[in-house]
Write a protein that binds this DNA or RNA. Structure first.
Lengths: 239, 239
DNA sequence: CCCTACTGCGTATGAGATACGCAGTGAAGC
DNA sequence: GCTTCACTGCGTATCTCATACGCAGTAGGG
C-alpha cells in the first residue's frame, strides 16, 4: 500500500525462497549473526561491509544480494539481537510484570551495548521489537488507565532503562580506556576548587575500574523508586 | 603527566595565542559554533569537515590548524553546546534543586538533539560538562548520603533525563519521517492479532504527528515519580 | 537442452577523514 | 630594515567505506 523501503519486507515479510538459479552460499541469518558478533566484540563501528564479508569468506558485494543496504542490516541486527519478548506473568500483578520486563530489557541492552548507539535513529521496527512494546503494555494492562497513558508509562519505564544502561555502558567503556577525569586533571589545571563535590567523590572512589558491582543495585533501586512513585500517583488520583 | 590526547588541552588548557606568523583567519569558537549550527539543523551526520569548511569559506584542511581531528571537534561541540551549569538555589531544598537541574539538562538536550547521538561514546569531558555534574551533586548535597551514593543518585536522575529525552526526540524524528509502524502494516502482514494492546493504542492515537504536546508533562510526571520514590526510600531508611 | 532467474563478485565511483608538504606571512631579533 | 622561522592557508594524495553496475557462471522449468 505504501511505498515502503525495501527493508521493511525483510523485517515483516515471509522469507522468500527463489526456485531458479544457483543455491545461495550465504543466508540472511548467517550474515546478521556474524554482524552481531562483530558489533558485540568491537561495537557498531567495526561492522563494515568489507569486514563482514571477509569474516564470511565472501566478496563484499555478495552481501548486497541478501541485504538492500547497510541500514537494513542494522535494522535486522537490532531485530535479531532483541530476541523475543519475555513471557510475563501478568497474573502476579503489574508491578512484578513491568519489573521483569524492565530487567529483561536491560539484560538485552547490556549484552549488546552497541544497541544503545543505534536505536537512536528512527528506523523500522520489526515484529520482535514491537513484541517487547506489546509486552510492556500487557504488563500494565491491569492498571486503570486509558491506552495512551499506559503507552506513556511504558515509554517512561523504557526511557529509564535505556538511560541508566547508557550511563553504565558509558562508564564501563570509560573505565576500559582510562578514567575520563581524575583529580590530577583538575589539579593540574588549577580547577580543583571549582569542583569540590566531585573531588569528594573521586577521593572516595577512584574511577580506575568499572563500578559495575553496584550497577545492578543502582538500576534496581531507581526502578523501584520510579514504580513507587507511579504507584503512589495512581493511588492518589485513582485514575 | 599523562599522555593525554591532544584534544584534552583544547578543553582544559588556556587558549594559547601564538605571537609569530600570520593572524589566523578563523577561530576555534567560530568553527565550533558553525559546527553546532549544522548539527542543530541537520544532525551530526551533516557535520563533515568539507561541509564545515565550505560554510566558513575556508579550505577543508584549514580546519586542522585549529582542531586535531574530528573527534576533538565533537568534544568541543558538546562542551560548548552544554553551556554553563545553572545556578541552583540549594537553600530551597534538594528536591526543587535537582528538579531544576533535571529540567535544565532536558532543555539543553532538546535544543541540541544531536547530543543524544554523540554523548554515547566515551570521551573527555570538559569543564562545563563536569560543572553540570558538580551542580547535580551540589543539589543533593543536603541529603544525608555518602559521596558515592550521592553520585549514584545524580547519575540516576541524569540517566532518566537522557532516556526520556531520547524517547521524545526519537518519536519526533519518526513523526517527521512518517510513522514507524501503522495498523495497516500489522494488518497487511496478518499480525494485527499478535499486538492487541498496540492496536488499541494506535486506534486512540495515530502516530502521524509528534506527541510533543504531552512530552513535557510526561517528563515532569516521571521525574516527580522518581523523586517521590527517592524521598520515600530516604525516609524509610533514614540513611 | 536451453532459457533466464538467480548467484558471486570484480571494478568503479564518490564521500569523507586526514597525512604531507609547499608557499606565503609577519613579529622577533639582529 | 632585513632575515628568520613559527605560523597560516590549503592543494593534493591516500585510505576506508558504501554502493551502483555489469559480467560470467549456475541450474530449475519448459
Amino acid at each position: 500500500m505504501s511505498e515502503q523501503r525495501p527493508g521493511v519486507e525483510l523485517l515483516w515479510g515471509e522469507p522468500k525462497r527463489p526456485s531458479r538459479g544457483p543455491r545461495p552460499g550465504l543466508s540472511l541469518d548467517l550474515i546478521v549473526g556474524e554482524a552481531i558478533a562483530i558489533a558485540d566484540a568491537e561495537g557498531v563501528g567495526g561492522v563494515t561491509m568489507p569486514a563482514l564479508a571477509r569474516r564470511l569468506g565472501a566478496g563484499t558485494m555478495s552481501l548486497y544480494r541478501y541485504v538492500p543496504g547497510k541500514d537494513d542490516l542494522i535494522s535486522l541486527m537490532i531485530e535479531t539481537a532483541t530476541g523475543d519478548a519475555p513471557d510475563l506473568d501478568v497474573a502476579a500483578g503489574w508491578r512484578p510484570a513491568i519489573t521483569a520486563w524492565a530487567h529483561a530489557t536491560r539484560t538485552i541492552l547490556l549484552a549488546h551495548p552497541w544497541m544503545l548507539d543505534v536505536v537512536t535513529s528512527p528506523r523500522v521496527m520489526g515484529p520482535r521489537e514491537l513484541g517487547w512494546l506489546e509486552a510492556g503494555l500487557e504488563a500494565l494492562a491491569a492498571l486503570p488507565l486509558a491506552p495512551m497513558p499506559r503507552f506513556d508509562l511504558t515509554l517512561l519505564v523504557n526511557g529509564y532503562v535505556r538511560g541508566v544502561a547508557l550511563e553504565q555502558v558509558h562508564g564501563e567503556e570509560v573505565a576500559r580506556q582510562g578514567p575520563f577525569f581524575t583529580p590530577e586533571l583538575l589539579t593540574e589545571h588549577g580547577r580543583a576548587a571549582d569542583f569540590p563535590r566531585l573531588m569528594e567523590v573521586m577521593e572516595t572512589f577512584p574511577f580506575t575500574e568499572a563500578p559495575s558491582a553496584g550497577e545492578d543495585a543502582r538500576f534496581a533501586f531507581g526502578l523501584e523508586r520510579l514504580l513507587d512513585g507511579i504507584e503512589t500517583h495512581l493511588g492518589d488520583t485513582t485514575v
